[in-house]
């Protein structure tokens, strides 16, 4: 069966068999792109009901409810985010994939970004694409056809393309001497401080039926009011959580402190509850692993990167 996997900057095609597992397909993808920091990533597909779903690596690909088309379509995406890109990401390819994915999320308004930060990020993305600004090469209008700013920023501030270009160009010139790879890292170092960066939002309710957001991210769980995804009202670091479970629509978070009361919330969509739990487990596992000594493999990767 023909399969197409799109990464942020490549399109790969494979032929798989009925016995091919998600893990085997995943391993072919990471081998092809040269990625070793695989723990952040997964394969997404659209199921027959139209929902975006993560491929289960332990199961056969064709036994999962992938929308029937030729070839079968998958997207290779980051599922988990580092707590700090500067300290954690080792390979250039990892930084590049994160840079492209995060940039797309910001430009599509999936992650809110205020105008000044948007222009700053745009200047780094221009440095990452073009390298140093030179007057002879980068003549007036050099950014006209580039997708550089979130749609919301373009709509709220009625500047012309030239006016936006002028602002971005000033900072592009300032980045002179910065390697393209370093510009991608600088982009991520700024983007990771955005309130919505790396947060997975889910609809939940409290006991009296108030609709709220549950945010699951690298540091823990947060609860937001429905009209404000930026300001968490309640937070639970992973270090304080002993266990999370659900039964039907009721979730229970048990604290490590056994004297403290359990925390209960309600997630109205059963289909989503397994996904919430898996994201919690994955983020928790990475949180704990980060606080242990580097594995031999990671030590080797870091040594190679230094060389």
């Amino acid at each position: 069966v023909n399969v197409r996997v799109t990464t942020m900057d490549a399109e790969l095609e494979f032929a798989i068999q009925s016995v091919t597992t998600g893990k085997q397909l995943f391993e072919q993808v990471v081998k092809t792109v040269g990625l070793r920091e695989v723990w952040y990533f997964g394969l997404q597909y659209v199921d027959n009901k139209g929902y975006l779903t993560w491929l289960k690596l332990e199961k056969k690909v064709l036994s999962q409810d992938v929308r029937r088309e030729t070839p079968l379509q998958f997207m290779f995406r980051a599922k988990y985010f580092p707590e700090d890109v500067d300290n954690e990401l080792i390979q250039d390819i990892t930084r590049k994939l994160f840079f492209l994915q995060v940039k797309d999320e910001i430009l599509s308004d999936n992650v809110y970004c205020p105008p000044e930060t948007a222009v700053l990020l745009a200047s780094y993305s221009v440095q990452a694409k073009y390298g140093d600004h030179t007057k002879e090469v980068h003549k007036s209008g050099y950014l006209t056809s580039e997708r550089l700013l979130p749609q919301r920023v373009l709509e709220q501030h009625k500047l012309s393309k030239d006016q936006w270009e002028d602002r971005i160009q000033v900072w592009h010139e300032e980045h002179s001497g910065m390697l393209k790879e370093d510009a991608m890292l600088e982009y991520l170092k700024i983007a990771q401080d955005l309130e919505m960066y790396g947060v997975n939002y889910f609809d939940i309710k409290n006991k009296k039926g108030t609709e709220l957001w549950l945010g699951v991210d690298a540091l823990g769980l947060n609860i937001y009011e429905k009209d404000d995804k930026l300001t968490p009202k309640i937070g639970f670091p992973w270090s304080e959580i002993r266990n999370i479970s659900f039964n039907d629509k009721k979730f229970v978070i048990k604290p490590i402190d056994k004297k403290a009361p359990d925390f209960v919330f309600y997630a109205p969509r059963l289909r989503i509850n397994k996904r919430i739990l898996l994201l919690c487990m994955g983020n928790h596992e990475l949180y704990m692993q980060r606080r242990k000594p580097d594995t031999i493999e990671v030590q080797q990767m870091k040594a190679q990167a230094r060389e």
């Binding site: 700053l120 955005l194 309130e195 108030t210 609860i223 300001t231 009202k233 925390f263």
Partner: peptide, 30 residues
Amino acid sequence: QAKERAHQKRSNKKAPPMDWSKRSEVFSNL
């Protein structure tokens, strides 16, 4: 300066500190 202003947003990602009892209380009042 623009980078510094952007960096200050990091503290917005943390909820106010409170114990588990207070978290349940605040949650039920939302």
